[in-house]
Design a protein around this nucleic acid. Structure first.
Lengths: 186, 186
DNA sequence: CGTATACGGTACGCGCCGTACCTTAAAAGT
DNA sequence: ACTTTTAAGGTACGGCGCGTACCGTATACG
């Protein structure tokens, strides 16, 4: 993903590219938008598990594609540039993704498949966060499907059902929060 | 984190550094080891919540330090080099960390604070994975303490208690696995 | 037909990595 | 005490990649 290569691949030279995009990063963001605008179909398979797996599989496929490779490299290059990172996140449709997960949870709650307390942003974003972290720790462009099912079956679904379904942990959390909550920030 | 700067800061020049470490990455790995060897005290606060928070806080502090900044930059630079990444992970004591989380869960299970089914690698690694993903999505340098408590209270503890505590989701998962398990890989 | 705007091409400066060559000081051997 | 081996510091270079400046050329507009 060098500018020279991009230019060569486009049949021209760097100059034409720098006329349209100020930075290398801007080009990457544009590529990302172009990539994400195409897809993201808000799956509705009828079960929470099916929806979650569909989302994860689609995301995994996206990030494994050649575009994804470019994206990952670009993201890595921008790791030390906070403002660039926020720009990428803003324009990347990441919160569109989060909203999709939330509506997915709402549908599940409406079906009685999940407690209402599971409709929570932190819960909704957890699977994608885990997938992202998996990308970071592995060097690989693709995550095996087994990992995706494990994220869903061993973490996401137990988490969804663990929230609000018991009174024991609710009490636990309340009484423990007394001792830990006021550390908030330093 | 340029080699010239490192050399200048060490009061010498690049040459001496390249005599000891073959790559820039090797230097970073050494720095990481030097960093992680010092700490990691396997906290035992008496409650699962306290232990988890202690681990997360300590990790957050570590990654926010100047060393952490170097590490993050280095990790970003190595994002497209799988063999280097595995080398970093092998020598980084990441699985030491995972083991610490597992023993933490075992202690909690022994105290009756968590079901035995919660002693699971995927569960144990989840909080650190979430923290890592938080670092990726934010520009960092540091994650506010509120996020850490949210990871623990909204995800980790419900997840721990959600596993094995109910028979409904167990059945759910079994019957659903019929329809999804054999997708394994493509 | 002259002019303005956009495009293609070459070349350059800067920063950084990694290496090669040279000089100098300390350690080891005789 | 003198020589030789070894380790260290210093300078310079080649390569790569980003971003910019300068130059030539084609197409649109008055």
């Amino acid at each position: 993903m060098t500018m020279d290569r991009v230019a060569a691949r486009a049949g021209t030279n760097k100059n034409a590219i720098y006329r349209r995009w100020p930075h290398r990063a801007a080009l990457g963001i544009a590529a990302y938008r172009h990539l994400t605008d195409a897809v993201m179909p808000d799956p509705d398979t009828g079960s929470l598990r099916g929806d979650a797996l569909a989302m994860l599989r689609q995301a995994n496929e996206t990030w494994s594609s050649p575009y994804g490779a470019i994206l990952r490299g670009l993201l890595a290059a921008a790791a030390d540039d906070p403002e660039l990172l926020t720009l990428m996140r803003e324009r990347s449709g990441a919160d569109t993704m989060d909203r999709a997960w939330l509506t997915m949870l709402r549908r599940a709650a409406a079906r009685g498949e999940a407690p209402a307390a599971a409709v929570h942003l932190r819960v909704a974003t957890t699977p994608m966060m885990l997938l992202r972290a998996e990308y970071v720790t592995r060097g690989l462009p693709s995550v095996p499907d087994q990992v995706l099912t494990e994220i869903v079956d061993e973490v996401f679904l137990p988490l969804v059902h663990g929230r609000g379904s018991g009174r024991r942990q609710a009490l636990n959390q309340i009484e423990n929060r007394e001792g830990g909550g006021e550390h908030a920030q330093q």
